[in-house]
Design a binder for these strands. Sequence first.
DNA 1: ATCCCGAGGG
DNA 2: CCCTCTGGAT
Length: 212
Amino acid sequence: MLTASQTQQAIKIMGQKFPDATTSLVADTPFHFLLAVILSAQTTDKAVNRLTPQLFARYPTPESLATATESEVIPLIKTIGLYRNKAKHLIGCAQGLVSKFSSQVPQTRSELMQLAGVGQKTANVVLAECFNIPALAVDTHVSRVARRLAMVSPQAKVAEIEKTLKQKLPAESWIAAHHRMIYWGRYQCMARKPLCESCPLLSLCAFGKKQV
DNA sequence: ATCCCGAGGG
DNA sequence: CCCTCTGGAT
């Protein structure tokens, strides 16, 4: 396993390759950003950004979405996967915001996770992006990159990955590390065909050495 | 552990 | 054709 120092070094090198790594979801308010993150489950950000302009225009506020029906929402999001569950989540989330949080997006993990469709990962993304609160969201890219680079144990599940990465990285770097690992997973260490031959992290990566 | 689930890429 | 995409609820 990589030491804390090696892990920090790897994150630094990722930042040299992707200096402007940041969220790719487009939204104008915390409410709309929350909706975009819910929609992004098992879906590319590009697919989400394609439909959100119309969704946001139709539902500008939590109140407007809270009274919507699934048959109204589904046509607006049908081009992405899992749309039936996501329609329920969007409406339920808006209803929760209205009934529990005065239509304001809450700023704590436990409050966010009371909302429909919001789990640990989505809560962490919202805390980091909307409120600049140190958080480290672990998604499919972060999981794969952390495992391949042996920043965590090979069989580690999401909760353990988050815990281990937080232990190895200073809190000030969590948000940037999240973005860099996402970009790394998208454009360098892809799931299907990683670019190990030209990887700046090859010397740190047992997985990559096996591929080359 | 299972289900949900369209679009894009190889 | 098969795999993957910033997961969450049951």
